[in-house]
Amino acid sequence: MWNTYLDVALLSHPILAFISITHHPKMNSKTTNLQYFIFSFISLLVIRCLSSTYYSVPPQYTLDVCTSVDQPNPIATLFPNNATGTLNGTIAVLPIPLTLARKLIPSQYGILEHAYRALLPSFPEGMYPAIVQAMHDHEVQAFGYKIEDFSRTGVEFPFVDLLGDGYSSFKWAPSLLMTAGHEIALKGAADYGTNTFAASFDPGCDAYRPVPNSKNPGTTYFSASSLEGRESLSTLFSLTEEEMYPLSFFKNFTNQPTFADGKTCDNMIRLFNTTLSSAEKGIERVKGTVRADIHPFAKEHEWRNVYGLRLDTAFIENNYLSCESFRGYTSHE
């Protein structure tokens, strides 16, 4: 309001100054008139600039308004009092040496090699299946309240023995690149102890985008870059007929309780029996390349000829639960 008054005064100043000079008996010299006009105008201008600085609101990062091609949340009305939504994107297995996995995963947690070998008997000896997820969260809601869509990606480590019982499988997710400006999503992940990095995504409103004129059919691209740090992750996948890993393996690790600092666990139940993905509808096998420069890796890594799935699933999420409550967990059916 104060700035508005000053703006009006500045606009009206030439007229007011002319009237004052014309009718004031002591202001009859041209020099005095000009000095008065300049001095008063500059004074108003300085006050206006100072008031703009004092009352200005710090700029904030705002979410772009965009439209996604993701399918609607099919279970929102079935579970109105739970957090539900859809996850659309690409999940792939990143084989890394078991010795490297042992260095990356905190030493107090064991690795349940027998658990993943029971699902993947032919997985190479001395190797561990790290996971990349490049996902777009769509129509996330609970109790009738819906939040804006957002994207996220990171490298995760399943089949971790968080409780030390040699049996219960957990997934360690230490870091995430997430949509910048989406404070609900960023804070929600950070509360688990996750290293969160506000990032820009390509595409900004979807799980991936087609690559035009690609030699390989169904080629899609996805990338995320931290706004302030070195962290980045990109994927380039094409359709394949090869089934390197069975769907049961993906169902298992995507539904493992997830943790970061081990204080609480996230129970995200991915559903493979809804209209989005029932009977493998909408699930595509893909093969491609992943580049990642994100904690806990010390430098950028590239994986070529990795296999995964491009899919859309509905989910139910239960947040900040006791990890102990999942003792004995092996899979969700």
Results as ranks from 00 to 15, higher is better:
Phe150Val: 13
Leu120Asn: 08
Leu186Pro: 01
Val132Trp: 12
Leu186Gln: 14
Pro174Leu: 08
Ala190Lys: 06
Tyr128Ala: 05
Phe159His: 02
Asp165Arg: 10
Thr194Ala: 08
Ala189Gly: 09
Asp191Ala: 15
Met127Gly: 08
Ala134Lys: 06
Tyr145Asp: 12
Met178Lys: 13
Lys146Phe: 09
Asp165Pro: 15
Ser175Ile: 09
Thr194Leu: 03
Leu177Ile: 08
Asp161Arg: 05
Val155Trp: 06
Leu119Lys: 12
Ala134Gly: 03
Lys187Phe: 14
Glu139Met: 08
Ser168Lys: 13
Arg152Ser: 05
Glu148Pro: 05
Val140Ser: 06
Ala189Trp: 11
Pro158Ile: 00
Gly193Val: 06
Pro174Ser: 03
Ser151Glu: 04
Ile131Ala: 00
Thr196Trp: 07
Tyr167Cys: 13
Thr194Met: 12
Tyr145Trp: 15
Leu177Met: 08
Phe123Thr: 04
Asp149Thr: 02
Leu119Arg: 12
Gln141Thr: 13
Ala180Pro: 04
Gln133Cys: 08
Phe157Lys: 03
Ala189Ser: 07
Ala185Gly: 07
Asp149His: 04
Gly154Asp: 01
Ala134Thr: 13
Pro174Tyr: 01
Leu176Ser: 05
Tyr128Asp: 03
Gly181Asn: 06
Ala180Gly: 05
Thr196Asp: 07
Phe123Tyr: 09
Lys187Glu: 13
Gly188Pro: 03
Ala134Asn: 07
Gly164Met: 12
